[in-house]
Amino acid sequence: MDVFMKGLSKAKEGVVAAAEKTKQGVAEAAGKTKEGVLYVGSKTKEGVVHGVATVAEKTKEQVTNVGGAVVTGVTAVAQKTVEGAGSIAAATGFVKKDQLGKNEEGAPQEGILEDMPVDPDNEAYEMPSEEGYQDYEPEA
């Protein structure tokens, strides 16, 4: 019985440690998101679009440190934060509304985080759909 109880105690310690790591990862992701939003706020009209992409990228980098179902929630929060940063930029006159959601080359930025393969159960990952990809044929 002692062996059984000791095993359960060790398992509990492992769960607590994993929860603490997840909590730490979420806190880091939130900190990076805040950094990115402050970065966007300090940019001029020309830099705002690039700044919004930076927020998304920093958040995406930190999301990889967070495991399990938390990833889905962090990704949703990050996307809403990026959308909010863009709205703030438009409201303050840093950028025109028609410039939001495009990178410096004018290509749409939507789907940055949505296409990231995420499995809350950590069982399997699927690649994003290939609808947006084109076949590449090298020139002879």
Rank of each mutant, 00 (worst) to 15 (best):
G14C: 09
V48G: 02
K34Y: 09
Q79D: 01
K58A: 14
N122F: 11
A85H: 02
E131Q: 15
A90D: 02
K6F: 03
T72Y: 06
E131A: 13
A69M: 14
G31Q: 07
K96E: 09
A56R: 05
D121Y: 09
A19D: 01
G25N: 03
V63R: 02
E61G: 14
Q79L: 13
K34F: 09
T75F: 05
K102L: 02
V16Q: 07
P138T: 04
E137H: 09
E137C: 09
P128T: 12
L100W: 03
V3C: 06
L38C: 07
A29K: 06
E137K: 03
A124T: 09
G31L: 05
A107L: 05
K43S: 03
E105V: 13
G14P: 09
D121V: 03
D2R: 09
K80D: 02
E110P: 10
A56P: 00
E137T: 11
I112W: 11
V37N: 00
K58S: 08
V74D: 00
K58L: 14
L8N: 00
K96A: 13
E104D: 07
E130W: 11
Q134W: 14
P108W: 15
A85T: 15
P120Q: 09
T44M: 07
S129T: 08
E139Q: 09
G86N: 02
Q24W: 15
L38V: 09
E20P: 02
G25Y: 11
V16R: 08
G73K: 12
L113K: 12
M116Y: 09
V118N: 14
K80Y: 15
E131P: 11
A11C: 10
T64A: 04
V71N: 08
V40S: 04
A107E: 09
M127V: 15
L38I: 08
A17H: 10
A53H: 06
Q134N: 10
K23R: 15
A18N: 15
G67C: 14
Q62D: 02
K21C: 05
K43Q: 08
T64I: 08
V52K: 04
D121N: 08
E130Y: 07
T22K: 01
V74E: 00
E104H: 07
A29R: 15
G47H: 05
K102C: 00
V77Q: 11
E57G: 12
V37E: 00
V37Q: 00
F4R: 01
E105G: 04
T22H: 05
P108V: 07
G14K: 11
S9H: 04
A18G: 01
D115E: 08
E46F: 14
A53T: 11
A76H: 14
Q24R: 06
A85P: 12
M116D: 09
V40H: 06
A11D: 01
V49R: 08
Q62H: 13
A56V: 12
Q109A: 07
Q24T: 14
G84R: 13
K6S: 04
A69Q: 14
T54R: 10
G41S: 03
V71Y: 14
A29V: 13
F4G: 00
G86V: 13
Y136S: 04
K12S: 06
M5S: 10
L38N: 06
E104S: 14
V118S: 06
G25L: 10
V40I: 05
K21R: 03
S42R: 05
V74W: 03
K32Y: 04
V118R: 14
V71K: 11
V70H: 01
M5D: 00
G111N: 01
G111Q: 04
E13T: 13
Y39Q: 10
E104P: 10
A69R: 14
G73S: 01
A29S: 07
M5L: 00
L38A: 05
G68K: 08
S129P: 13
N122Q: 05
L8E: 02
G93L: 15
M127G: 07
K45Q: 12
V37A: 14
D2A: 15
G36F: 03
E83S: 02
G31T: 15
M5K: 04
V3Q: 14
G31H: 10
G14I: 13
L8C: 11
D135S: 06
E46Q: 04
T64F: 04
P120Y: 11
E139N: 11
V3R: 14
K97Y: 12
L113D: 13
K10E: 05
G86D: 02
N122Y: 14
K97M: 08
E110M: 11
G51Y: 05
G86W: 15
G106E: 08
K80Q: 08
K34W: 14
P138A: 12
D115M: 07
K58V: 09
